[in-house]
Design a protein around this nucleic acid. Structure first.
Lengths: 199, 199
DNA sequence: AAACATATATTGACACTGTCAATATATGTT
DNA sequence: AACATATATTGACAGTGTCAATATATGTTT
């Protein structure tokens, strides 16, 4: 009396679990990603995932790392098209980051949920550092004397963009235009930081 | 055969539950605030809190509302001491908000955990709007023509400050000084935004 | 081919959670 | 005194993450 032979090994469970995690993330947000649900969607028992992710945090950390790389790609693509002035680079960076956040709210949120993700993870940090380095070297194109050093610019623009996305996703204000310049609020606040780039 | 008479009614359970919630928040962060734990600390059964908070979200929303008022008080205190230039007001606002976030990481985090808190709650929104209005009228002191309208400034400075706190709490960078101006990075990025205030 | 080690999956349990229904006991009002 | 209401308890249910014990495939060595 043989049991049915195959179907015990999934074959590529790790990838399946990750895909399920992404689906759940987009559908219902970071908190809905549970070990048991990704297992369920992968057609596997509730304890099977432990062989590929030692716990929930590790799974979510891997997901976040992939997302940071995705964001990195988007930023790189934008930056490499027109390697022009530092101001343009800063604009591109901020707009790409904000666009990513607004288009994929759930994905963006996970990136900053340090209760769900292990921020000391080496791969995750490397993914974040990659983005920062890209921003720094973009700013560094400038040969001019600037009012502040490049790290101040990088931190300022990243903080601004991140804060803006957070508050937009939180629905703290509506998107509108600046009543003086006529440009969008988003463009206006980015320009406000860029203005300080000059000597 | 009488049971022991008192001790059934707690007397002031609502206040006790809130106090417990704050203690847990400071000790272990927003996620550690559970209905059952606040009940336990208040010496009451696990289902007693329902009479005062209909569910966990309501409890956390009330906590967040109180925290926003606390932040409001801190900002008001700073602003009312020296009602000087708009630039000074913006500086005070940003520095007070950042100080609050860095001093009380767990409290600050809860304010932006929209998975735990009902952001459509009227009291909560009123508390947030109160802060925004205060910022707007502080900026509005200016009679000069400005480069952007007051809402752009308000959103820019709040986004910047919020983003900065988030990334500091996330340990994305260390506090350092700007190598050109010599001032702290925090002061530098605030100045970067303030520079754009002028015509 | 046989034996063994390893990787992968299952089953079942434990302690914890939020929430609900049913019940008990105070308090307040008529 | 009677009744309504506010407040608290008990017990249950469906979830969760994680662990230990077990089963089954795969890979390697002999």
């Amino acid at each position: 009396m043989k049991k049915k032979q195959s179907d015990f090994h999934h074959g590529n469970l790790r990838a399946a679990l990750l895909q399920a995690a992404f689906e759940i993330l987009d559908e219902a947000g970071p908190d809905a990603i549970t070990i048991r649900e990704v297992a369920r969607r992968s057609g596997v028992s509730h304890a099977a995932p432990v062989n590929h992710f030692k716990n929930r945090t590790e799974l979510l950390t891997v997901v976040a790392t992939i997302l940071f790389r995705e964001l990195d790609s988007a930023i790189s693509a934008k930056l490499q098209t027109f390697p022009t002035t530092p101001a343009d680079c800063v604009r591109s960076f901020a707009n790409t980051l904000i666009a990513f956040g607004l288009e994929h709210p759930n994905r963006y949120q996970l990136l900053w949920r340090r209760d769900l993700v292990d921020n000391s993870d080496a791969d995750l940090q490397a993914a974040m550092d990659g983005i920062y380095d890209k921003l720094i070297s973009a700013i560094d194109l400038s040969k001019n004397k600037t009012r502040f050093d490049k790290h101040t610019f990088a931190i300022a623009i990243w903080s601004l963009a991140h804060g803006y996305v957070t508050m937009r996703l939180n629905q703290n204000f509506e998107p509108m235009n600046d009543s003086i310049t006529g440009q969008s609020r988003q463009d206006a606040i980015i320009e406000a930081v860029i203005l300080s780039l000059g000597t």
